[in-house]
């Protein structure tokens, strides 16, 4: 089984973990936008990382997650891990 997560899945996780910033359209084309720009700081990403582990079993160390600047970076990392694990 090769399961991967989509941008929509990531959006849901981000909102669950850290809420939404007023004035940011998360439904828009954000895949290459810096997390900082859409309102998610390093703590928001750490919280999201913990949820990714709980829900999908993907472990991304806190130090690594801070290096992932955009939703695409994070999705690539998560999906690569999922594919390797399957």
């Amino acid at each position: 089984m090769s399961k991967t997560i989509s941008l929509d899945d990531l959006r849901d996780l981000l909102v669950q973990c850290a809420g939404e910033v007023t004035g940011v359209d998360l439904a828009g084309d954000i895949i290459d936008t810096d997390f900082e720009e859409i309102g998610y700081d390093s703590l928001a990403l750490m919280e999201t990382g913990a949820r990714l582990e709980a829900v999908y079993g993907v472990v991304i160390p806190d130090d690594d997650i801070a290096e992932l600047k955009t939703p695409r970076d994070l999705l690539d990392r998560v999906n690569q891990t999922l594919v390797e694990a399957s």
Binding site: V15, C17, A18, G19, E20, V21, T22, L43, E47
Partner: peptide, 8 residues
């Protein structure tokens, strides 16, 4: 309050 502030 904006939802961004609620989880924290």
């Amino acid at each position: 309050l904006p939802s961004r502030l609620l989880p924290q």
